Simulated scan of single mutants.
Amino acid sequence: MSYALYLPKKRNMDIQGQQILAADIGGTKTSLGLFEVQGEALLLLREATFPSKAHATFEEIVKTFSKDLPVPPILSIGVAGPVLDNAVKLTNLSWALDGKLLERDLGINRVVLINDLEATAYGLAGLAQEDVATVFDNGGTRRGNMAILAPGTGLGEAGIFWDGEAYRPFATEGGHSDFAPRTALDLELWDYLRRMSDMVSWEHVVSGPGIYSIYCFLRDAKGHKEPAWLTENFKNDSNPAAVISHAAMRELDATCIMSMELFVSYMAREATSLVLKHKATGGLLLGGGIPPRIFPLLRKDLFRQQFIQNSRMTGLLQRVPIEVILNSKAALIGAAYYGAYGQY
């Protein structure tokens, strides 16, 4: 698999052997990796994952990871939140990061922050063929912009601009735009969620917590019965979305099946908006923690049927290739590639 990402330092021989510390910070977990530049590729030397909320600060995690390592010259961080002036307040975690302060506190020459979906896009430079699975292939030559939609703890979205020679990723915060109900049931769900939040965004329905919210709506507002075994599974598992998707894929419970059908439909509809707004004829990539786990559901007709449904642009949408990023390290790899070869 080959994506021509804009990484202008790839042919710079002066950085051969240089080590890059990369991080992927999410609301649930934080992954760190130490990479070494070898030619136009990176070699992963060490990695570890930490539960984000079990640590008071990101610096604490870095110091734990690198306590017996020499200080690397560059720390490149993919972070779930809007990065402005190399600083960020995380969306689903009570951390605030500032590149300059991290350089001072950690003794690192250069700290660079990018959005985690931007990092995921740069990760395409380091992925192999088996790291990506096809939902739909139009069989033609791919040209044009691409888009990434990534539901997990939250909903990440990014664009990848094709400049005629290379792909240039850029971050968005589209997951926080308003949820757009289409059906009577959607309106009932919107009203249910509106009682819990001042504003209902796409992240409220296209995310792990969103799956559970949809299920709770069907159970509590629509009167769907919950079997005792499912109640017990919820008690024994800290990830209710995983319980619901597991039951749905194995056709164990009708409410779980309906919850996942609604989730897949909402993901497809928001993907449609993202693709149209970026004219992403080069392809739609589904990343994050959820799509690889529910890949069998995405291969069914429902996702693509919802995706191509549009008043005037069905013809364009029918041509868009759709793939799922299977490699859970894509954002970590992308942060490393950006730190080693990117322009900042």
Rank of each mutant, 00 (worst) to 15 (best):
M1K: 13
Y6A: 00
N12G: 04
Q16K: 06
Q18F: 12
Q19R: 13
G26Q: 12
T30A: 00
L32M: 11
F35S: 02
F35V: 03
E36P: 06
A41G: 10
R46I: 05
A48S: 12
T49G: 04
F50W: 05
A54F: 09
I61F: 14
V62P: 15
S66N: 14
P73R: 08
P73Q: 13
L90Q: 04
N92T: 14
D98R: 05
V112N: 01
L113G: 03
L117P: 09
L117Q: 15
L124A: 00
L124H: 04
A128Y: 05
D131T: 09
D131C: 05
D137E: 06
D137H: 08
N138H: 11
T141H: 10
R142I: 12
G144Y: 13
A147G: 01
L149G: 02
P151D: 00
G154Q: 03
G156W: 11
A158I: 06
D163I: 06
P169M: 03
F170W: 12
A171T: 09
F179S: 01
A180Q: 11
R182K: 05
A184L: 15
E188S: 08
L189F: 15
W190M: 01
D191N: 15
D198R: 05
M199P: 02
W202L: 05
W202G: 03
E203D: 14
V205E: 02
G208N: 08
P209Y: 01
G210F: 09
C216T: 02
F217M: 00
F217T: 00
D220C: 03
A221F: 07
K225M: 11
E226H: 07
P227A: 08
A228W: 07
N233E: 15
F234M: 13
D237A: 02
S238I: 07
R250L: 10
L252C: 06
C256I: 14
M267E: 11
E270Y: 09
H278G: 01
A280Y: 11
G287I: 09
P292Q: 10
R293N: 03
L297S: 06
L297V: 12
K300T: 15
R312G: 09
M313T: 07
Q318P: 08
N327H: 13
A331F: 10
L332M: 10
A335L: 02
A336V: 04
A336M: 00
A336L: 08
Y337P: 12
Y338M: 00
Y341Q: 00
